[in-house]
């Protein structure tokens, strides 16, 4: 029996579709197949409406304050000396790149810097093995924090062609790489990219980069590089 394609996309957005159908859908989406995109939109609509089914629960007023604090710069505080050099770099790198967000001026830069410093100040943040043996250039330092995310500090990155971007990935021990945000390096090839949010480090084998089309890809379309193992 021919599978109902709408159904396959509904299963996909619900997280229920397994290989090989899942890979076929992602391949069709990578090709920007109009029919695939239309089916994805339809499935996303149903999925979003399902999210309206639970009965309303009133959140506390404190939650609103916590959410609004996201847009406020972090207060200054002291940081461990061994992370100070990265903080200094964060302040000096003119082409600061942060979470794939295109900068909207100085204020955005400052907020990105504050978020980066807050990440580095956390006692749970740790530095992974730097770069790879086979690729002396470019180089990167990767900081990970299971509850806060992944910070990449890179240099000597190759300039990007028009319409291309770098994408960071977490490579799990099993399954395909998971996207961790887009960024573009400064003119000198340097970049600082913070992907905020919890990340399951127990499940992660490595952090990697790839070059992707503008807007990013759900899975790498070019060979990943700067593969940094995640270990204790």
């Amino acid at each position: 029996m021919t599978p109902d394609k709408d159904l396959l996309y509904e299963l996909y957005v619900l997280g229920q579709l397994e290989e090989p159908e899942r890979g076929e859908i992602e391949e069709a989406l990578r090709r920007n197949d109009p029919a695939a995109q239309a089916r994805l939109r339809k499935a996303l609509e149903t999925n979003a409406i399902l999210g309206t089914l639970p009965p309303p629960v009133e959140p506390s007023k404190a939650l609103r304050r916590r959410v609004l604090a996201i847009a406020e710069p972090a207060p200054p505080s002291r940081m461990p000396w061994n992370l100070a050099w990265v903080a200094l770099s964060a302040c000096l790198v003119a082409g600061l790149v942060y979470t794939g967000v295109q900068r909207q001026g100085l204020e955005a830069d400052l907020r990105a810097r504050d978020a980066t410093l807050a990440f580095l100040r956390s006692s749970e943040t740790r530095l992974l093995k730097t770069g790879t043996v086979t690729e002396p250039q470019p180089v990167a330092k990767v900081f990970v924090n299971g509850s806060q995310g992944v910070l990449l500090v890179a240099s000597n990155l190759a300039p990007l062609a028009a319409g291309r971007t770098y994408e960071m990935w977490v490579v799990p021990k099993a399954g395909g790489p998971r996207p961790m945000g887009l960024f573009k390096p400064a003119a000198d090839g340097s970049a600082i990219h913070l992907r905020a949010g919890a990340v399951d480090l127990n499940d992660a084998a490595a952090i990697a980069l790839s070059v992707e089309p503008e807007g990013g890809s759900p899975a790498p379309t070019t060979a990943p590089f700067l593969i940094t193992p995640v270990g204790d």
Binding site: G15, Q16, R41, A48, P172, A174, D203, G216
Partner: peptide
């Protein structure tokens, strides 16, 4: 993760385009 299918790809902001205007 073998059984838990990754969800991140389905929440990329770029895919939420051209959904029905009055969807919800």
């Amino acid at each position: 993760r073998q059984n838990a299918i990754e969800l991140t790809a389905t929440e990329m902001p770029s895919v939420f385009v051209d959904l029905e205007a009055n969807l919800m």
